[in-house]
Each structure stands twice: as structure tokens, then as C-alpha cells.
């Protein structure tokens, strides 16, 4: 692995640790309002400053990491399950099964994803769960295509014929032999997908239809910061940097995995 991959892994690992240990790392309760200290710039008592309600920005960012990463992981987890299953089935069974799944993917790809999400959120209510499900349900197509392509070439290999010759069921062949051997490129796609999902969540929250205040997420902190941009530069700088660095980390890691397989 090269240095950049390690760097990416370091960033990813760092934010995961921050998210897991948020209660221990955050110096204040992220929801604690302090009218006396509204919009104080970064100082020794509030290292990232405070927001327009006097809440500690650093603590909100730490808890926001939890939300952002959770949305990223679970949304991509949903996408991976759908994508791997449909891709594997299409690739293995071929013929009409493949044709139906592939046309369905084509249809899904025709929708402008972000507007589809906007429309669905407008109909439902903007909760964290809805956001994760909707991001997952609209981002599995790339994974499915990769999976299918890998399986198409793997299933002609002799060891798959050998499995069938010893009487292995289709489910066993797909789950134990095909999918594990096809995972490398899918893993790259998943890693890059997490970065994408974090960006989408931030975008939605920034527009006010994502994670709803008072729950902190990087996107909605950024959105609150926009209102007070002149008075509190720190309100936009830190969440913006956090999103940028996290996405960079996942992209570097994804590239690293790609090169090592």
C-alpha cells in the first residue's frame, strides 16, 4: 500500500473513532444552549467557537460526525445489499432474469438521483432513517453492474463447474464462491459510495430537508452557518473542512484498494 492509501485510511479511522467515542471527546452537551455566549469566536474554552444559540461548535461537530458517518455507512450498506444481490442473480442466471434486472437498472439510472431524493423527501418527512433508505435505494446500480460483470467471467471458471459437479446448490455457489471472489472491485465502489452518501446527506441537510435540527449533522451546521456568515466564519469553515477531509479520505482509500487488487 502506498502512502496516500495509508493517509486515507488514517483519516477514515480517525473520524470513525471520533464518532464512536463522541460522548467522551465532546467537552459540552451539543444541545446545551448558552445565551450569554452567542457566536463567540474560537477560544480556549470553545476551540471551534459557539453557534447562534451559544452551543459549543466542537461538540456539535463531534456528534455530527456520528450522524454523517452513520448515514454514509447505512445508506451504502443498503445499496451494497441490493446491488450485490441483484448483480449476482443477473450475472449467474443470465437470460431473461438478467434482461429484466439490467433494464430495471437502466431505468433507475435515467432518474436524476438528487431530484428524485428531493421529491421523495418532500412527500415523506425528512428523518434520518428516510434519508438513509432513500440514498441507499438510489445508489446501488453501479455496484450491481460491477457485481454482474465479475460474476459473468467467474462463472465460466472451472472451479464453479467443479462446484456444480459435486452437487452444490445455486445459493451455495453464489454466496460462498462467486460473491467472495467478486468482492474486490465492489469494495472499491462501496468505499467511494460512502463518500458520495456523506456528500448527499450534507447537501440535503444544507437545504434544510435532511437531518433536522436540533440533531447536529455537518450539513445542517453548515446551513445554520450560512445565515450568520458575516458574523461567524467558523460556523462554515469547520463543517466544510470536515466534509472535505472525510470525502477525501474515503476516495484515497478507495483508490488504494483498487490499485492493490
Amino acid at each position: 500500500m502506498n502512502k496516500l492509501t495509508w493517509f486515507g485510511l488514517g483519516i477514515v479511522g480517525f473520524f470513525i473513532i471520533v464518532a464512536i467515542f463522541a460522548p467522551m471527546i465532546a467537552p459540552y452537551n451539543p444541545g446545551q444552549i448558552d445565551i450569554e455566549n452567542i457566536l463567540t469566536p474560537p477560544s480556549s474554552s470553545h476551540i471551534f467557537g459557539t453557534d447562534s444559540l451559544g452551543r459549543d461548535l466542537f461538540s456539535r461537530m463531534v456528534y455530527g460526525a456520528r450522524i454523517s458517518l452513520m448515514v454514509g455507512f447505512i445508506a451504502v450498506g443498503i445499496a451494497a445489499i441490493i446491488g450485490i444481490a441483484l448483480g449476482a442473480i443477473a450475472g449467474y442466471y443470465g437470460k431473461w432474469v438478467d434482461a429484466i434486472i439490467m433494464r430495471f437498472i437502466d431505468i433507475m439510472l435515467c432518474f436524476p438521483t438528487f431530484f428524485l431524493i428531493l421529491a421523495v423527501i418532500a412527500l415523506l418527512e425528512p428523518s434520518i432513517i428516510n434519508i438513509m433508505v432513500i440514498i441507499g435505494a438510489t445508489s446501488w446500480m453501479g455496484i450491481a453492474r460491477l457485481m454482474r460483470a465479475e460474476i459473468l467471467s467467474l462463472k465460466e471458471r472451472d472451479f464453479i463447474y467443479a462446484e456444480r459437479a459435486i452437487g452444490a446448490s445455486d445459493l451455495r455457489i453464489i454466496a460462498r464462491h462467486l460473491i467472495p471472489n467478486a468482492m474486490a472491485p465492489v469494495l472499491v465502489s462501496i468505499t467511494l459510495g460512502i463518500a458520495g452518501a456523506i456528500l448527499v446527506e450534507s447537501g440535503l441537510s444544507f437545504l434544510g430537508i435532511g437531518v433536522q435540527p436540533p440533531t447536529p449533522s455537518w450539513g445542517n451546521i453548515l446551513s445554520e452557518g450560512k445565515a450568520v456568515m458575516g458574523a461567524g466564519w467558523w460556523m462554515m469553515l469547520f463543517p466544510g473542512l470536515a466534509i472535505f477531509i472525510t470525502v477525501l479520505g474515503y476516495n484515497l482509500l478507495g483508490e488504494g484498494i483498487r490499485e492493490n487488487y
Binding site: D158, F159, A162, H177, N181
Partner: peptide
Amino acid sequence: YASLDPRM
């Protein structure tokens, strides 16, 4: 080389 699952 092709007849055994490389991960097994």
C-alpha cells in the same frame, strides 16, 4: 489453477 476456488 482455475479449478480450485482461490479463497478456499
